[in-house]
Structure formats: C-alpha cells, structure tokens
Amino acid sequence: MTPVIELQDVSYAYDIGPPALEHVSLTVAEGEFLGLVGPNGGGKSTLLRLVLGLLQPASGAVRVAGASPQESRRVIGYVPQYARFGREFPISVEDTVLLGRLGTTGLLGGYRVADREAARLAMTQTEVLDLRRRPLGSLSGGQLQRVLVARALACDPRILILDEPTANIDMRAETDIFDLFKALNQRMTIVVVSHDIGFISRYVTRVACLNRTLLCHQPVPIGSEVIERLYGMQMQLIPHNHAFEREAKT
C-alpha cells in the first residue's frame, strides 16, 4: 500500500503549556479510512494542522503525498471543526463551494465552466444542490456541515481530512454524513477526528488513539482496555446504535 501521510517521530509544543504531541509516528496508506480519537487536549487537532502544513513540527518530519505538507495542500480537502467565518457573511452556498476550486483554477478573473461543474458535482454528492442559491447564514447546522464538506470535495482531493465534522449536528445527520464519507472512501483516503469511538468504528478501517503520544493504531474494533489507557480512567465500552436507527429497524 502506498503511504500518503507519514509522520516520523513528530513532536510539537505551543508557546505556553505542556507539549501537545510527543514522538508521534504514524503512516496512513492510500485508500484508508482512519479514525483519530482521544481526549480533549490530546493533540488530535494539532496533528491535523501539522499534516495540513498550518503548523511546523518542533522535531520530526511530516510528509504528505510524498512531499512537504505545504507542497501537497492542493491534494487535500479539509473540513474544520468549527466554521471560521461569520454566519452573517454575504455569500451563497454555491459561492462558498466554489472557493474550494481556488488553487486548481486560474489566478485571474472569475471561475471557469469546469470549476462550476466540479462545484455542482460536489453539491450533488453532499445533497446541497437545492440550497445553492441560499445565503450561508440561513442554513441549519447539518446543512452548513454538508456545504463545508462540498467545499472540501470541490477540488477533487486525494486525501480528505475532517476535524470533528459532526460535532454540532444531530445524530441522524451524523449517520448521513458518515455514510457519505464511507462512499467517498472508495476513491480517496480519509482521516477523521471524532470523540464517538463506538460510532465511527462502524465506518473506519483503522483507529489511531492519541493522547499526546500515539497509544495505538490498530484495526477496529478496539476494547475497553485501550479506552482506559487513552482517557486515563476506568471506562466501559458500551456497544450502541443511535436511537432513531433502532426506531427505523423496529
């Protein structure tokens, strides 16, 4: 399997506080669907930001698609944990998704036909095509999340990186979005940060447990013992389905 993300003995510390990451080595192969789990402050978002090239490691090396993260940004689609823009910003869904084409289209002037077609395809895949004329501020949390996924898909990425993409949406929308990720995994590598280990276990091919250091990275399922090591307290893993799914099955 071709490695697409490689972290070798990576450490990182912010200006204040303890190190966020210590001696982390992790390889993600082409076509994998990796779930990144761990407690708050465990370094999950820091690791993603290192892979995206938004942070530089204090020591160690990060390679993405065989090059530096900065050089490989154009093959990465990224969905942030929180929208980093004001909801009142005057922009439509379509124009937001089109921003995902920057870097793959010309420098001057407007968008080309190919850009609009790629954006349309991304909106169709994420089922937001009907919302394309709507202002971003009028969308629900789930709709906005789908638009952000569409924006990440608009550049037809090789790697899709998602930082808690379902943190602010209800469970039904969460299942819909993860079903979409599963389908997308047929043609791209996916790395997703999540708190719900039980839920993502049904979708990912491997789980990496991170709490400043990489505690494990193994195929699912993972047991209570690993969870205890990860969160530093006694835990019990309770297999569960989301309520509405049980309702649907009965």
Binding site: R84, F85, G100, L102, L108
Partner: peptide, 23 residues
Amino acid sequence: VAMFRRQFLAVCFDEEFARLRGV
C-alpha cells in the same frame, strides 16, 4: 477587484481555508 475578486473574497471569508487552497 475584478482581477482578484476570488482571492480577496477567500481572504475576507475564511483566511485559513484560503491558505490551504494555496492563496
């Protein structure tokens, strides 16, 4: 503005995403 409207929009809307798209 006509030449670089997409880049200015991206920088005003979401600086981090603009940076990730190579702007």
